[in-house]
Amino acid sequence: MAVAVELRGVRVRYGLLEALHGVDLACPAGRVTVLLGRNGSGRTTVLRALAGDVPVSAGQVLREGRDVTALDAHRRAAAGSAYVPAERGVFGSLTVAQNLALSGDAPVDRWFPELARLLHRRADTLSGGEQQMVAVGRALAARPRLLLLDEPGRGLAPAVAARLHGALFELAAAGRTVVLAEQAPLPSLQRAAVVHVLRRGRVAFSGEPSELGPAGGAGGADRTGLSL
């Protein structure tokens, strides 16, 4: 499997605290990678480091073998990556149509037909779930080769979330690389190629979902400290 994007010995500091204490992980090209971990485990920071949203205090970020550690977030985005944060992923003062048009012109109504009737609403007047659809839709509109999503299912109705996860595998099948962060192993993500489990700013487990235990189940999760 070719590696689409990779962290090597990455450390990230927020002010005085260190959120990642030297993380190595790789995400295969054209596949779905899932980052698991509890709040504060560093999974969001991993995504931000991949997207260039946070300065890396040590280590390297590699994109298709090229060192992009020093590359600005907007240049990484222009080079074909898109990042959907877990919260506030829309420009509230712009309409839905303007939000989508900012990134690109790929049609998104295939995935989110619900957005068609909301195109002229200001994004900050939408519900949380609708905003999440706009945020993901904005990323898809850019036709990214690398798609980074932080808990994209949060706030979505279960059916919509399942549809979204299906869409992510479709995209991967079409050659795009998908990396998403989740709190807990969801059944609909069983088909993921790789799972990285983060714990206290380090990678605690890397492997296939099946190695985590049946249906992402208790055995493997316990081992990596995932159960409640």
């Binding site: 927020y14 605290l17 260190e18 959120a19 204490h21 504060g40 714990r199 206290r200 700013g201 380090r202």
Partner: peptide
């Protein structure tokens, strides 16, 4: 207030 945030396992 979240005394464990930013600590590794040994420090925790």
């Amino acid at each position: 207030d979240e005394p464990g945030a930013g600590l590794d396992l040994a420090q925790t």
